[in-house]
Amino acid sequence: MSLHLDATPAHGPTGAARQAPPPRPQRSVRHRLTWLDIKGSPYLYVAPFFIIFAAFMLYPLIYTAYVSTRNWTLGAPDSTPAGLANFRELWHDSQFWTAVGNTFGIFVISTVPQLLLALFLANLLNRAIRGRVFFRIGMVVPIVTSTAVIGLVFSQLFSKDFGFINYLLQGIGVHHIDWKSTKWSSWIAVATMVNWRWTGYNALIYLAAMQTIPKDIYESAALDGARPSTQFWRITLPMLRPTIIFTVIMSTIGGLQLFGEPALFGSGSHYLQGGSLHQFQTVTMYLLQEMFERSRLGYAGAIAWVLFLMILVTSLLNFLVIRRINSDK
């Protein structure tokens, strides 16, 4: 609109525009094209993203919602309406709630230490230490390693019979842990894999954010006698707030969709089981089990939608909490 108004006075002084003959058609076309270009092209530029988003995100989301209200066996030509029966069944499904508990449990014991450690590492690497480049590159290595490899290596480390971790624990007198057998031991094993992979990634993001904080703030703080720890709490942390919010939300989304690590940890012909009593079966693993092993598309759709809502709510809660903690400073 602004351009249109700007363009009008170009016809002449005040009043001239009103009395001027109507613009010649070709001018008007060019005029409209310019207007369209300015107004429309930004949408055109962002369109590819939204088209892809609609095709691969929005449409599946809506279609999944539709599927979740059907009784549909994978491979069967027809489905029958089920109303909210799938959701009602889910509400009373103890295996689902076990999976929810596992997902949140592993999420908490992986994300919290992970982000704290990442912050600590980033703070260290932000200083002038010897071999800084080496350490910074070192942090990236786990990210470029494939989940499958990590899963294989860690499954062997946590093996009950010949695992290196059990071997080390034996040295300090702890006897033979069957990592897959109990809830806590399997959670710790899975969380270790997750942390190993993602701590460096988050540290890198924190480090990048720390380097955008102007040096002179630190210098004047140092002149005022603020010690490094005070500088960290009073300057670094508050200035990192948007970054911390970003990493917390990304970790929430990733953590609640956790699949690769626990699936690879439970190697064997029925790895989606997540342990004999579903000790480490996450929601996504249960979703896949219902969908592809038990062929219940409608029920899997209901799980997918509940998971989506859980991620939405948890991300929102985390966002509110993190924002609050930081603005207290």
Binding site: D178, G266, G268
Partner: peptide
């Protein structure tokens, strides 16, 4: 006590 067909 192995999980049959697993790596262990």
């Amino acid at each position: 006590g192995e999980i049959s067909f697993s790596d262990e």
